[in-house]
Design a protein around this nucleic acid. Structure first.
Length: 282
DNA sequence: CAAGCCTCCTGCATGC
DNA sequence: TGCATGCAGGAGGCTT
């Protein structure tokens, strides 16, 4: 499932494959992928050229000529491929951007959860999802003070709070479990009870862990690959996610898997404990 | 406004 | 072997 490091890896790969290519026509095989009128979407894109590929959180922002931006979210299993137009379509190909040079950008998505929106460049902040998106998880954009303020607004558990893209952009289920393990924080601890020390650790681990995962070209758990079809390498560095039943690398106690807010959640019951004040309050 | 639940989808693992 | 069931989950929509 692509989270921020995977989307960033896709972005980097796509730049080399589609920049300066011009769209001859667009084929939409599953209309629900497109937000708004899909005929108009296809029509507006004809004749435009890819000029840059940006990213905000888990959103890809394709910058096109004619002052257009294609906002694309891969959700669970969205993938892009660049192929010759003559190459037979594989199953689950839902949107096809045919270029004037005989190649095509194809959007594949097994579960059809991904979405695309075509907007005027500069109006990104009016698109649902981007409107209230939290800061990028970088030292430059993501401050401890701001993080503290946002966490204090939530009484719910820290795990689903980290998945809330309005708090900080980019974390999904895998990296949320990882940064909580690294920070030695129990996933069920209410967000507004985190101490200054815990918030500082969590903040720092979010920045460093996502940066490391980008360096490793992302995590491939089920089906994620980059624009070239290559898998990532970060799954080898996971400490908690998918490791239920295995010994914790820090203390040897068996990693557990529980459900938190309907999401599979992996943690070490020895390293990640609820503070006594929280246990007593419940 | 926060929080909880449901929905969208398909493939794969499990159980009888 | 075949079929039903459950599970995976990002984000938007809905209700409370």
């Amino acid at each position: 499932m692509p989270e921020l490091p995977e989307v960033e890896t896709v972005r980097q790969g796509l730049r080399g494959l589609i920049l300066h290519k011009t769209i001859a026509n667009v084929e939409i095989r599953w209309g629900k992928i497109i937000n708004g009128d899909s005929a108009q979407f296809a029509n507006d894109l004809v004749g435009t050229t890819f000029q840059e590929v940006d990213r905000r959180g888990k959103y890809l922002l394709f910058r096109l000529s004619d002052n257009l931006t294609l906002v694309s979210h891969l959700r669970m299993e969205g993938k892009y491929r660049v192929t010759p137009q003559a190459q037979p379509l594989t199953k689950h190909t839902h949107v096809i951007f045919n270029f004037t040079d005989g190649t095509a950008l194809r959007y594949l998505d097994t579960r059809k959860f991904g979405r695309m929106t075509l907007i005027k460049t500069g109006t990104e902040n009016q698109v649902g999802g981007l409107k209230t998106l939290g800061p990028e998880p970088t030292a430059a954009a993501f401050t401890v003070a701001d993080f503290t303020q946002r966490l204090h607004k939530h009484k719910k558990a820290i795990k689903p709070t980290l998945l809330d893209q309005n708090v900080v952009a980019g974390l999904g289920n895998i990296y949320a479990d990882e940064v909580l393990w690294l920070s030695e924080i129990h996933p069920l601890q209410p967000a507004n009870t985190l101490t200054a020390g815990q918030i500082q650790r969590l903040h720092d681990n979010i920045i460093t862990e996502l940066a490391k995962a980008i360096q490793a070209k992302g995590t491939t758990i089920r089906s994620y690959t980059d624009a070239y079809g290559a898998t990532g390498g970060f799954q080898l560095s996971l400490h908690a996610y998918g490791r239920e039943g295995e010994p914790c690398e820090r203390c040897g106690v068996t990693i557990e898997k529980i459900k938190v807010a309907q999401r599979g959640t992996h943690f070490c019951p020895h390293c990640q404990v609820l503070p006594e004040s929280v246990v007593n309050a419940s």
